[in-house]
Design a binder for these strands. Sequence first.
DNA 1: TCAAACAGATAAACCGATTTAGTAAATCGG
DNA 2: CCGATTTACTAAATCGGTTTATCTGTTTGA
Lengths: 340, 340
Amino acid sequence: MVNVTMADVAEKAGVSKSTVSQYLSKRYEYMSVETRKKIEQAIKELDYRPNVLARSLKQKRSSTIGVIVANIMHSFSTEICRAIEDYYQEQGMNVILCNTDEDGDKEKSYIEMLQAKQVDGMILFPTGKNKSLYKKLTKQRIPILFVDRKVEGVHTDTVVANNADAVYQAVKHLADQGHRKIAILTAPLTISSRIDRVEGFKRAVQELGLDSSRDLTINCEIGQIRGRLQSLLSREDKPTAIIAGNDLVLMEILAYIKENRIRVPEELALLVFDNIPFAHLLSPTLTTISQPSAEMGRAAGRLLHERIKAEQPSDQQPPREMTYECTLIVRESSQGGIRP
Amino acid sequence: MVNVTMADVAEKAGVSKSTVSQYLSKRYEYMSVETRKKIEQAIKELDYRPNVLARSLKQKRSSTIGVIVANIMHSFSTEICRAIEDYYQEQGMNVILCNTDEDGDKEKSYIEMLQAKQVDGMILFPTGKNKSLYKKLTKQRIPILFVDRKVEGVHTDTVVANNADAVYQAVKHLADQGHRKIAILTAPLTISSRIDRVEGFKRAVQELGLDSSRDLTINCEIGQIRGRLQSLLSREDKPTAIIAGNDLVLMEILAYIKENRIRVPEELALLVFDNIPFAHLLSPTLTTISQPSAEMGRAAGRLLHERIKAEQPSDQQPPREMTYECTLIVRESSQGGIRP
DNA sequence: TCAAACAGATAAACCGATTTAGTAAATCGG
DNA sequence: CCGATTTACTAAATCGGTTTATCTGTTTGA
């Protein structure tokens, strides 16, 4: 038999489909032990496995959620995805993974695909380029949750790191080491996490009375970082410390540093936002700002799940925004570099 | 209207469901331009989106494939997954991602879940612990494909790297640099890729007439690597070069080297199997064996897809095994280390 | 003793599409 | 002008489950 259905089981057990269905959903209340045994037996003999598509169709839920990530190659994203996946596995649910490369069109087509697939909810690293679509989703009561980035004007659950404060602490740490001229390099300020990082930077510079020249804040495409670094570091009054906005920016900076044989931290202190797997193995070891990715991923999974479960009764709680604190892990690259 | 169905569209357009269905599948043959326009209009006005679950139920295919990966945190795995995802996006299909942590039970439960979800096929990094289940799947004509690892006795499409030859070339390279005592460290030999790497190592040692002491081949759990390294390197006749079996092993080795201030490549040459994102940024830069992960992922996607499409006509081609060559990227860590 | 309650099970409707078999009207060929 | 074909469209069955209403008997309660 190619495909065993519930009808086959029912026939073999000598009962009706309805009873088999009751058995499967473990509603044994009005069922004789005898019947139960017969069904059990029939299922085993036929190696029956229910078709969840049919179930989902009727129940109007698919036990599947969609995760739309900007770039899975980013280790922070991978860690979040993994945590989400772990959470939903425990809950007996599945995760469809989608990758947008920060492309708004791809994001849109994925969202529509996931909707067509009747996912119970979506977790997204929003590109921010489809605001009206996000809003439409919330209006249609499709549970969505943003992670890593907030989107202004869209009211839904959000899980982010305290980017601003983390950078503030980082700048403070550098200032404590005697640095007065600190630069920050990030990718373009298209998403809230980057904006917040720069904001924390500016606030710290302000409050701590550091050099607040405009050109110590650089936001550009990855490909242009080398060039910007070049001009930044060839100036007379060049910065003594640099904060890399994420792991990809860091790679560029490290390459530049290696090429130009810049000594870290003696000539230039270095600090990165993001957990770098090799941070403790580089020479010098790298000071990092670590985001609690596993906790954030789990929280995202849990929060969305609560929304999904609460969807039936119309107890509409206001959107929650969870902010996770980061940890500054001080290593060699940011310590004892400059002579006051 | 909460959920627009095809019936709603049909009513609005003043035609039958059947005609709408024809329209959706672009079978315009026997349809007046007028009708077509009316349907178009109705769909737009209602913002109708077909329910793919219903479609899948009837058509007995879900346009979804399952990917079961041993450990998504492994960068090689992530790269493969990304390539698979890219491929299926282009094909208008979705990917459900599952993570097993090399746990056979998890793998089994995922396989069953995916089957229940009626996936059109599965790509797996097999743990190797569910042979009978793999066989059952192939017997049931459910298209499955193995990637990274072969499984003896299970006849299905497989995409792997030429692990043996890659290591052979690596050993040759080290021998060319004058090394006679080379060690290889890998995780336990539970999967074919690791077994093949060791085999390539042994063959090279044999053919090139290098030191073939048994204890230069170490296979142990990640947690034990430090200890094994300790005893390996405290011997009088210690090896002058080490090959790390994968990125996780490398991390342990690098940590050990850093702690014990071993100079690379002067005291010890180092070479890793796997593409390490920081390879060119470490000091010294690291010699690596790079697997063409993107090509392998795409190939896996394409091959499985061909199987899926060919499933309807009963043209059963024999299983294909695609082997991809790796590239030895020589950097500082393996060059000019020893004095003959 | 008779209606109400209950235990155990089922028939049939339903979820939202696809697909098959068929129908009515228009067109065609001889 | 009539039967055959073609065109344009539809009713109804189907996919494989869930769910609701219902249907027998058997207990129970007053």
